[in-house]
């Protein structure tokens, strides 16, 4: 934590997000702390429903209408996104952060051509000359060419339904980097793709982000994908970041009991056979457990875990963990 806070592209401090539902207030995010450095590629790993998407949507202020943020800050280059004026939000969305959605069959408007949609994105980027059609056209074709798409001019005139899932996700990647961006957020970009092309798309994403010097947040539920793509990993459980470490470091040593359990879930080729699951399930967000939300499933849970919420403590080498096991021992 020696880096000055200003060098963070995005920093989230103690973020709480709730959703109003018929059943009551669903307290999804429970004090998320998170940051991404300039040029850093960060993966957020966690089970479905643990709040990964909610966390990143708060950065772009595109949370659903029924959401509420009772507490917390979301800083983009030191500026609180939650307090931005509509004009500032437009700049943030137009040129600051872009997002690639999970399902490429759903994330392109079905009744407009790829070209129309890409040019709209460029038009709102505020890049020099972006209000001119020729510039939009040129940048869009260039972005498509950079994703190794054959015949970009033809793709520009196509409608989404005329392209395969993999092609559409390439279009989304091209779109997200058609003008310079500080950050790209990719929400499980390969989950809905054919296994055979998942790897290609992931490599492409990584390569594009690197060549444009953008930061990346990659959401995934697969540690394998995170390992391949990221510099650093956040492990998320039930609305909390429970552990973060540089990717290599985390695969060497896992501190949080949840991360340890998650690692044991990866099927290994040698020995072991079928992977273990984690007993129990994600808690009910209507009445989440007091204290550490993992306590009910944790083999090491102590009295303190059930009443008090653990905060991140630094363990050196950029490794941080939110667990009382390490506090108790007076270190890691």
């Amino acid at each position: 934590m020696s880096v000055a806070a200003d060098s963070f592209v995005v920093q989230i401090k103690d973020l709480h997000v709730e959703y109003k539902t018929y059943a009551g207030m669903v307290k999804v995010l429970n004090g998320v702390n998170f940051h991404v450095d300039a040029g850093e590629k960060v993966a957020i790993v966690g089970e479905t429903g643990c709040g990964k998407t909610t966390t990143v949507k708060s950065i772009l202020r595109i949370l659903p209408r029924n959401s509420r943020i009772p507490k917390g800050e979301v800083l983009f280059k030191g500026e609180n996104v939650l307090k931005m004026t509509p004009a500032q939000v437009r700049i943030l969305r137009g040129s600051g952060v872009s997002m690639i959605f999970q399902d490429p069959t759903m994330s392109l408007n079905p009744v407009f051509t790829i070209g129309e949609q890409m040019m709209e994105v460029i038009r709102n980027s505020g890049s020099p000359g972006a209000e001119k059609r020729e510039v939009q056209q040129e940048l869009a074709v260039m972005a498509l060419r950079e994703t190794a798409m054959p015949d970009p001019e033809r793709i520009m005139l196509s409608y989404p339904f005329q392209l395969s899932g993999g092609m559409r996700q390439r279009v989304c990647i091209a779109m997200s980097l058609s003008t310079p961006r500080d950050m790209v957020i990719a929400d499980e970009p390969t989950t809905n793709l054919d296994v055979t092309i998942q790897d290609q798309v992931l490599k492409l994403l990584k390569e594009r982000v690197e060549s444009k010097h953008s930061s990346l947040i990659l959401i995934t539920h697969s540690l394998g994908v995170a390992r391949e793509t990221s510099d650093r990993i956040y492990v998320m459980y039930a609305g909390n970041m429970v552990e973060t470490a540089p990717t290599k470091e985390l695969f060497g040593e896992q501190l949080h009991p949840y991360t340890q359990a998650l690692m044991r879930c990866i099927p290994r080729l040698s020995g072991g056979g079928v992977a273990e699951g984690i007993p129990g399930r994600i808690p009910n967000y209507l009445t989440p457990p007091e204290g550490c939300r993992f306590a009910p499933r944790c083999p090491h849970a102590m009295e303190r875990c059930r009443s008090e919420k653990p905060e991140f403590i630094a363990c050196g080498n950029g490794h941080m963990v939110a667990c009382f096991l390490y506090d108790e021992k007076g270190g890691c």
Binding site: L60, P64, S98, Q102, V121, N124, C172
Partner: peptide, 15 residues
Amino acid sequence: SMKDYIQAQQAYGVP
């Protein structure tokens, strides 16, 4: 309006 493509276009700052 709840579909991904509208969210995505909103996220790209379309007025």
